[in-house]
Structures are given as C-alpha cells and as structure tokens.
Simulated assay, not measured.
Amino acid sequence: MDSALVIGGTRFIGRHLVADLLDHEYDVTIFNRGTRENPFADDDRVDHVEGDRTNDTALEAAATTVDPDAVFDCVAYHPKDVRVATRLFEDCEAYVSVSSGAAYGREEIPKREGETPLHSCTAEQATDDSAESYGNRKAEGDRAVFAAADDGVRAMAVRPPIVYGPHDYTERLDWWIDRVNRFDRVVVPGDGTNVWHRVYVEDVASALRIVAERGTAGEAYNVGDRRLVTLEEMVALIGETLATEVEIVHAGPRELAAGDIDLEDYPLYRAYPHVLSTAKLAALGWESTPLEEAMARSVDDHLESDRDGDGNGPDREAEERVLRVLETL
C-alpha cells in the first residue's frame, strides 16, 4: 500500500497516525471540516480535502477524488459512520476503524477479542451523542465492520483503552502531571492499586498502520501498553520523570468526604480493573513503547503546553481539606 486517507487527522490519534504514515513513506490525505489548526498545513507530503464526514455526499466525493489504498477512520462516532464508509471505500485494500475498549460489555480480566461479549446497542443509542452510549455505539460500529468484511470488504477495527501522550486534548494525564509538578503531596484515591489500562498514542498510530498492512478482514485488535501500572505507580513514574520528590497520600471514601470528593472524581480512576489482552496485535509484529519513554515524551509535551487538566479532577482546596483530616488520624 502506498496511499492513505485519514478521516480526521489533525487533533490527537489522527495527528500521530499521519506522522507515522509519513515515516513509512505513505502518500497521505486528510479529510475533515478544517475547523481546527492543521499541523500539516505546510507539509507538501500531506493533502487536505475539506468536508464533513457525516455528509455522505462529501465523503463520497473524497473517496472518488483520493482513491486511497488504505482508509483510517479516526472519527467514526456512530454505527452509521462505519456503514457508510465501508460502502464507499469497499474497493480499498484496507479500512481500519478506531474503536474502543469501551465496546466490551462484560467485566472480565483481561478482555479478549472474539471472546468477551460486546455491548448491545439500541436504535436510540446508535444515534445518541452522550458519553453513556459511547461503548454501545462503538460496539455497534464494530459489528458494522464485521458485516462489511462478510461482504468482501477488508475492514478491521482497533480497540484502544485510555489514550495518552502529546497533544492529548482530554487532559486527563495532564491533570496528574500538573499535580505532581506543583505539589509535594499528591492525593491518590483508594489504596492506589486500581488499574485502568492505558495506551501511548504513538502506539495506537503504529497499530492502525500495522493492522491495515497485516491484519485479517473482519477482526478487531486490542491495543494497549504492554506493561500495565497501577494509578499509584503512574504517579510515581511522573515524579521520576520530573525528577521531583512526591509523597503519595492515599484517601478512601471516608477521608475524601471531608473535601466532598468521590473516588470517581479523579481522572484515570476505575473501581474495577479494565485490562485488554494485546497478544493478538503483538502477533502481527506490533510493539509497545517502553513506559518510561512514553511518559518522558508526555511530560515534555505537557511542560511545553498550556494544558493543566483543570476541571478533570477535584480542586486543590478540596484536597487540602482531605489532607488536613488525614493529618489528624
């Protein structure tokens, strides 16, 4: 494959995917509305077709104009998006949809492709835009991928958990980096051992390309850090990366109540472990970036940005009340 169309391509996962494709000598075209700054505007290796992917006519025009070998769909938020794209790009060598680990509908450790059941999706959920229906919509989008493959389209899905790294607009990791950078004492909810699988964004990008090149039609592939860390270990790693001393202070529901804080108010906290098996993707030759390297790049990007994650978690004043209570125990 020599040419790629990236639906999206300028914000986060898509931005890193374009960079990865360029590193592997693809001719790249991005398709989006052009409402965000294009980091590739001055790169003559990247073409831009403007259009709204929810407009079927605009997407069909892009399919005709570009005629790519591979299509990477970074913004398929509804099942209809996948069904339309797999129809319009049915003759391409590969169509890869960015799905989500949230598509899994049962809690088990680890979650495995083809074994762990997916969420169901009602007609109402399929057109909803709320966070509550996100996993349902992604699951139905995956079923659309499988259906397209049954019809002869080389369609596949990649399922990441929480994605982090440079240019992360969600700022979930930024909240924690900011805490460790500014304060000597950092409150970690619970006992610090909870696990929510995460994945470095450049590894998602390489996974998408590798699945397009080597994957099997009709399959979904989990992607995630090969070495998982608990929330406490993540905070400690941030401290090591910043070369700063950090005292981790555990606080359970009783202590957090002093600041009117719930465990779930903290970003990247999940009561039940969310772990994805990545063996299937690794069998294609994919490798994960070492955690220390991934965190170093993430911290460097944070320090160069104006992101602080404010609003993603409890404010410091509330945490100070919790710390004062803990000092009396």
Rank of each mutant, 00 (worst) to 15 (best):
Arg106Met: 11
Pro110Ile: 00
Lys111Gly: 08
Lys111Arg: 15
Arg112Ile: 15
Arg112Asn: 03
Gly114Met: 10
Thr116His: 04
Thr116Ala: 12
Leu118Arg: 08
His119Glu: 14
His119Thr: 14
Ala123Asn: 13
Glu124Gly: 00
Ala126Phe: 01
Ser130Arg: 03
Ser130Gln: 03
Ala131Trp: 12
Tyr134Phe: 12
Glu140Lys: 06
Glu140Trp: 00
Ala144Tyr: 02
Arg154Lys: 12
Arg154Leu: 05
Arg154Glu: 13
Met156Gln: 12
Met156Ile: 12
Met156Asp: 08
Ala157Cys: 07
Val158Met: 09
Pro160Cys: 06
Pro160Thr: 10
Ile162Gln: 12
Tyr164Asn: 06
Pro166Leu: 10
Arg172Cys: 09
Leu173Phe: 14
Leu173Ala: 10
Asp178His: 14
Asn181Tyr: 13
Asp184Ile: 00
Asp184Tyr: 01
Arg185Asn: 12
Arg185Phe: 04
Val186Gly: 07
Pro189Met: 04
Gly190His: 06
Gly192His: 05
Thr193Gly: 02
Thr193Ser: 12
Trp196Leu: 15
Trp196Val: 14
Trp196Glu: 14
Arg198Ile: 13
Tyr200Ser: 04
Val201Trp: 03
Val204Arg: 03
Ala205Val: 10
Ser206Trp: 01
Val211Cys: 08
Arg214Ile: 08
Thr216Ser: 14
Gly218Thr: 09
Glu219Thr: 15
Ala220Arg: 11
Asn222Thr: 11
Val223Ser: 00
Gly224Cys: 10
Asp225Tyr: 04
Arg227Ile: 15
Leu228Val: 15
Thr230Trp: 00
Val235Thr: 13
Ala236Thr: 15
